[in-house]
Design a protein around this nucleic acid. Structure first.
Lengths: 281, 281
DNA sequence: ATGTCTTTGTGAACGCGTGCACAAAGATGG
DNA sequence: CCATCTTTGTGCACGCGTTCACAAAGACAT
C-alpha cells in the first residue's frame, strides 16, 4: 500500500513540517562550515545565503524549533548546531547496514560523511558467496544468509539497499521483518512496505530525466525566441508558426521542432531498466 | 543568486507542473516494465499501483500531456511510453560528462541505465594527472585542463559533478562558462549558478538525516505510548513525565531522554563535511 | 536611562499540489 | 441500434508551503 515517500498524509510530525525537516540538514551543513571557521553568530540573511534558501523561509523553519535567535544579533552558531543536531536525532548513534556491495554499495561504504553525522556502518551484506569475507572499506562483507542475525545483533533500524532492482523487494521484506523501520533505496523499484516503515528513494536516472526535460524546454524556447526575433517584421508568419507549435505537443507529429536529431532509438532495448543506479561488480 | 532547486517561482514550465514532471520518469519506468512483458494496455489504477502513486494523481498528470487514454479501456502502453519519452526529451541524444572520477564517479560511469534513456557518457574528467588515460568503464579519463574543449567538441549541455566539495563550485563555474546548462551535483555544497542554468542535488547524507529524524520520532512515540500504557493507573506520574518531556526540547539539557547513549561526539571533527558523498580514490 | 537601529519571529495572504467525486465518453454485449 | 458498464478526464475544495510585511524585542551608542 504505502509506497515511496507519498504515504504520509499527516505531513507535520509533531508540529515540524516535512519540508522544514528536509531543509534542516542543509542548515546544519552550512552551520558546521561556519563553526569550523569559528564564526560566533550568524544572521538569518547570511545563513540563508549559505544554505541557498530564502531568509524568511529559514526564520520560519527555525521558529518551528523554538526561539533560538537573538533579535538585533542573529543566531549563535554552536547553539544552533546543537539544537538542529538534536532535533534530527544526530546526537545518538545510528548503526546502518548496506545491502548489495556492488559498485555503488562499495562507494557508499567508503563514504566519509557517515561517522560525523552519527551514522555508523555496522555491516556490509551481499548475496554473492564470493564476496563473503572480502573487506570493503575495512569492513568484511557478510553473506545475506546472516541478514536477520546481523540486524538483531547490532540493533540496526536503518537499512540501505543498493542491490539490483529484482532483489530489492525481497531484501526489503527481510530487512523489515528483522526490525528495520527506515530504508534508503537506491534500486530503481517501488518498494512496498507496511505502515510505520519509512522509505526514501534516490534515483540517478530520474534526476537526469528531469534535467533533460528542462534542457529540452530551454532549447525549445531558444528556438522560439530566435524565430520570433528573426521574423519580427512579418506578424502573420509568426502567428502561423506559433499556432503550429502550439498544436504540435497535443498532436504528436513532431515534424520539425527538436525531436528529429540523433535519437538513440527511442525505447532502446530497455533491458537495463532492471539494474540499480549502479551496476554491481 | 539562484541556488539549488529553489529558484523557479513559475513552477509550471509550459503548463506541466514541476511535480508532474518529477513523476513522469516513474511512470515511464513502470510502463517500460509492462512493455517488456508485452502488456498492450493498462488502466490508470494498475499503472498507479505499479508506480506507487494515487490513480487520480496519475490521471491528472497525464491530462497535462493530453488525452492519450481511451475511456472504458485504459492507456496504450507503447503509445504512452513514446509520448512520455518525447515529453521528457528522451528521444534525442544527451551527451553528459562526469567530473570527478573518484569512487562515486566511477560508479556512475558504470551505470547501465544511461544509454537506454538517451543519455551517453561523452567523457570522464578528473583533476588528478595520475588518472589521465586510465580507462574507467571502458572510457579513458581525461584531465580537467581539457574540460572546455571536451564540452565544446561533444556539444555537452548536461554535467555531473562528483568532486570533493571544495572543487565543486570552480568546476561548476567552468562547466557553465563552457556552455553546460544543466548540472547534477553530488558534492555536498550549494552551487551558485547564473539564471537559466538548472541544478539538481543528490545528497546521501541529507537523505539519511531525514530518515534519522523520523526514526527518532518513531522511537519517541513508542516510548511515550509505552509509558502511558504502563503508568495508565497513575495519572499524576504521567502528567509529570509528559511535562518533563515537553520541556526537554525547548531547554536543551538532554538529561535522560535519548541523547546520552553512544554519541560519536556530536559535532565530531567535522572535517569530512567537506568531502563529497563518496571519498575519491 | 533613553532613543535608535538591527534583526528576529509571525500573522496573513496567496499559490500550488492533492484527492474526491462525478459527468462524459467510448467499448462491449445483446 | 440501444443499453450497460468500465474507465477516463476534470471541476472543485482543501491543506500545505512559501512569501510578504511588520510589530516586538533586544543590542548598542549617547
Amino acid at each position: 500500500m504505502a509506497t515511496g515517500r507519498t504515504h504520509r498524509p499527516a505531513t507535520r510530525s509533531r508540529g515540524i513540517p516535512e519540508a522544514t525537516v528536509a531543509r534542516l540538514p542543509l542548515y546544519l551543513r552550512a552551520l558546521t562550515g561556519l563553526s569550523e571557521r569559528s564564526v560566533p553568530t550568524v544572521s538569518s540573511e547570511e545563513l540563508a545565503a549559505a544554505a541557498g534558501v530564502n531568509s524568511a523561509k529559514l526564520r520560519k523553519d527555525f521558529s518551528y524549533l523554538g526561539s533560538y535567535g537573538t533579535r538585533g544579533v542573529g543566531y549563535d552558531v554552536e547553539y544552533l548546531v546543537y539544537q538542529i543536531s538534536r532535533e534530527l536525532g544526530l546526537t545518538q548513534d545510528w548503526p546502518v547496514v548496506i545491502v548489495g556491495i556492488g559498485n555503488l554499495g562499495a562507494a557508499l561504504a567508503n563514504y566519509g560523511g557517515f561517522a560525523s553525522r552519527g551514522f555508523r556502518v555496522a555491516a556490509l551484506i551481499d548475496a554473492d558467496p564470493a564476496m563473503a569475507g572480502k573487506p570493503v572499506a575495512g569492513i568484511p562483507v557478510q553473506h545475506s544468509d546472516d541478514l536477520e542475525r546481523i540486524i538483531a545483533d547490532n540493533g540496526v533500524s536503518i537499512g540501505v539497499i543498493a542491490t539490483p532492482a529484482g532483489a530489492a523487494q525481497p531484501v526489503c521484506d527481510r530487512l523489515v521483518a528483522a526490525g528495520v523501520t527506515s530504508i534508503l533505496n537506491f534500486a530503481p523499484t517501488v518498494l512496498t512496505v507496511p505502515d510505520g516503515v519509512d522509505v526514501r528513494k534516490v534515483d540517478l536516472s530520474i534526476e537526469l530525466q528531469i534535467l533533460a526535460f528542462h534542457e529540452q524546454r530551454k532549447a525549445g524556447e531558444a528556438i522560439e525566441a530566435g524565430e520570433a526575433a528573426e521574423a519580427a517584421a512579418e506578424a502573420d508568419v509568426v502567428a502561423v508558426a506559433v499556432a503550429a507549435k502550439r498544436r504540435a505537443p497535443a498532436d504528436g507529429s513532431g515534424s520539425g521542432s527538436a525531436g528529429g536529431s540523433g535519437s538513440s532509438g527511442g525505447n532502446g532495448k530497455g533491458s537495463d531498466g532492471d539494474v540499480p543506479a549502479v551496476m554491481p561488480a
